[in-house]
């Protein structure tokens, strides 16, 4: 049972006096889906970069199963806002990349990658160069690439931010399916309150100047989808709308300050 713990962390941009994050604490365990929302500049992405090991805090502790985080690692796969795929590799080889690093033989890793491509809805696009894929397809590919190494944690930095509304709904469904199937601990940075409520088991609201957590809300709408309710029914249920209004108020109230 893996556990990623961020305790009392403060972080600065290089050379800046004011902190990006001040005294932020957050824990992420297996089977948890934490969505972080907040306006731009509240340090959401910095929080993810710390969790991924791409950046380091000025004070506070980050631990993975009790061990301090010293850098990135394959137990914490990242899905990037700008997909960060490798254009010199075909779709299937992008997905197989993590397995290639581990030394998995070519045929085996490509077979595994093909399975994942099918799972994220990209079956048959194996050899397609990635610059011939649409934005939505590229995000699916980024997700498949992360899933290929079977990470304990999936860290996602606004992966759906640049997608159109229709594609976004499909991707939300896909994320939910993957969460329910893998039970990986997921950290999702998002701008969309609805997305956060719909997918997460816990919604964290952040505010800027300095970046901090102002509200944590445990929710279970995704479990209701799992129990058989339709996505549309859940999203229009009274308690979903109420929770959304509450979070909207919270974000806007903070924004007005």
């Amino acid at each position: 049972m893996s556990r990623l713990e961020i305790s009392n962390v403060t972080a600065h941009y290089e050379g800046a006096a004011a902190p990006v994050l001040a005294n932020v604490s957050l824990a992420l365990g297996a089977g948890e889906f934490v969505a972080v929302i907040g306006r731009s500049g509240c340090g959401k992405t910095t929080l993810l970069n710390l969790a991924a090991g791409f950046a380091f805090p000025t004070s506070g502790r980050l631990t993975l199963d009790g061990q301090p985080v010293r850098g990135p690692g394959p137990e914490r796969a990242v899905v990037f806002q700008d997909d960060a795929l490798f254009p010199w590799l075909s779709a299937v080889d992008n997905v197989a990349f993590g397995l290639q690093l581990k030394g998995v033989p070519k045929n085996d890793r490509r077979e595994a990658a093909r399975g994942l491509l099918a799972r994220v809805g990209l079956a048959g696009l194996d050899e397609r160069p990635i610059w011939r894929l649409s934005g939505g397809q590229r995000q699916r590919l980024g997700l498949a690439r992360a899933l290929a190494i079977e990470p304990a944690f999936l860290l996602m930095d606004e992966p759906l931010g640049a997608l159109d509304a229709m594609t976004r709904e499909h991707m939300q469904q896909l994320l939910l399916d993957i969460f329910l199937a893998t039970r990986a601990g997921i950290l999702l940075i998002t701008h969309s309150i609805e997305e956060a409520l719909f997918l997460a088991t816990r919604v964290v609201v952040m505010a800027p100047n300095p970046g901090r957590i102002v509200r944590t809300l445990d929710v279970d709408f995704s479990r209701r989808v799992r129990a058989g309710e339709s996505a549309r029914a859940v999203k229009s249920a009274p308690d979903f709308i109420e929770a959304r209004a509450e979070l909207l108020d919270l974000v806007f109230e903070r924004e007005a300050q």
Partner: peptide, 14 residues
């Protein structure tokens, strides 16, 4: 690209 380097590192690249 910094993101591509980070992507590879988070996938386990030395």
């Amino acid at each position: 690209s910094r993101d591509r380097i980070n992507a590879a590192r988070s996938l386990g690249a030395s």
